[in-house]
Amino acid sequence: MEVGLFIPCYMDALEPEVGISTLKLLERFDINVTYPFDQTCCGQPMTNTGCHTEAAETEKLFVKNFSQFDYIVMPSGSCTNQVRHHFDAIKQTDEVQHVRKNTYDLVEFLHDILKVEDFPWASFSHKVAIHYNCNALRGLRHASMSERREPFFSKPKDLLSKVKGIEFVDLERPDECCGFGGTFSVFEEGVSAKMGQDKVMDQHRSGAEYVISADSSCLMHQKGCAMRMGVDLKYAHIAQILNGDLS
């Protein structure tokens, strides 16, 4: 199985350790992982601002980098959602459709494709609150959502449950948006920060020591708020836990 690894632009620049955890985690399984060197971004900042034309070349480059793989995997639900659901600025060739269809977020890939049963190398004895990125939750269906009448499920929680020692705590508003929202975080700074602060307080009240998410972007925003507020909470990407890099 040939897997192409995409590392989101903000993660490459700011949280390389999450990329490393992702790569090393994937390498534990019987697959061939490659990181195409010419990768940049998924195009989400432009697309979400309505600038589809401006996103077209970025989308083309992405397809060029990744069309030869069986699967494209990335440690971000949000970027996955962009590739799968919004790669519309370019002609829908077979290659483009192949890329869209075979792009998976790390959680989905471990849960649905590799069907990993155990993470024996990992243990994490902490109280953990899960944060769902909205695109991962409602776009990729990482988990059941509180708005709908549907049976509970959670792919991130399923995976984390296979790590020794984790104790889950519940948030009062388990799937309310944290206010990151990509460019929203700077274009609409006041509302974004207020949402982030409220999210941090909810996490704090839950008794969590760590907030774990499949998306570093939300976490970067929440962590920024928590640090400024002086709230003692730690934030980690699910790849770091599943690979046993944090304990």
């Binding site: 979400n48 601002t49 309505g50 909205c134 695109n135 939750l137 409602r138 776009g139 959502m145 708005e147 799937d175 309310e176 948006c177 206010g179 990151f180 929202g181 990509g182 929203f184 274009f187 609409e188 509302v191 974004s192 949402m195």
Partner: peptide, 10 residues
């Protein structure tokens, strides 16, 4: 107005 949203989908 359409930018006053995080596109969270709730």
């Amino acid at each position: 107005l359409p930018f006053a949203s995080t596109l969270n989908g709730s």
